[in-house]
Amino acid sequence: MTLGVKQQIIENAISLFSENGYEGTTLNQIASSVDIKKASLYYHYANKEEIYRSCVNTCINYFINFIEESHNHSVYSVQSLHKFLFDFIFNIDEKYIRLYLQLSYAPYQFKDEFLEQIKNIHLILDAKIAKYYNNIDFDVNKEEFTTIILMFLESWYLKCCFIHRYGVLEKFKPSFENELSSLFKAIHTVP
């Protein structure tokens, strides 16, 4: 499927913002990435802020859709939790991971808006993770469980940002498996 120019601008800008941050990305870079002149960007977007906001909205929607689609037919077992966590780390486009992690450093004018969007993702994710807790016996309470799972995801997102830059992500899958196995052994009551 071929993207329209407006969508192509956003997809390419996500990559640029995720690599260079808001301040490090210029309108010239964005225009060059889609092979148009800077002046042509203004036909599609009023300014850099609007492009950035659209990129973040696309990123947030990407995560929400991924979470929802991953749980369409979930039985909320240990195995399906394992699969979800694995997919949420290794089958997410890295540019979205990098942009998401940078949101805590977004320019001041976006802070409140983006914080609300991040809270929304966490509410959706918390609700899905709570369903695992409700269907599996764990040795920790629900709040501890959701916190542990979210911390595990966040730590692996940070690792992925470095791994993509300095190594091959595929090589780290055994490490992920070992850490997740240890985590499950620590918090899961095996019947």
Rank of each mutant, 00 (worst) to 15 (best):
L3P: 12
K6G: 06
A13K: 09
I14M: 05
G21F: 12
T26N: 12
Q29H: 02
S32E: 10
D35I: 10
I36V: 07
K37Y: 12
Y45W: 06
Y45R: 09
A46M: 11
K48G: 02
I51K: 04
Y52M: 03
N61L: 08
F63P: 04
F63I: 03
I64Q: 07
N65C: 09
N72F: 09
H73D: 14
Y76L: 01
S77H: 04
V78Y: 06
L81H: 07
L81P: 03
D87E: 02
D93W: 00
I97P: 03
A106C: 06
Y108K: 14
Y108D: 06
E113T: 05
F114Q: 02
L115K: 15
I118Y: 02
N120Y: 10
D126N: 07
Y132S: 01
N135I: 01
I148T: 07
L153S: 01
W156F: 04
C160Q: 10
C160A: 10
C160P: 05
I163N: 03
R165C: 13
Y166E: 12
G167N: 09
V168R: 11
F172H: 09
P174N: 04
S175W: 10
N178D: 10
N178M: 11
L183Y: 14
I187C: 07
T189Y: 09
T189K: 13
P191A: 02
P191C: 03
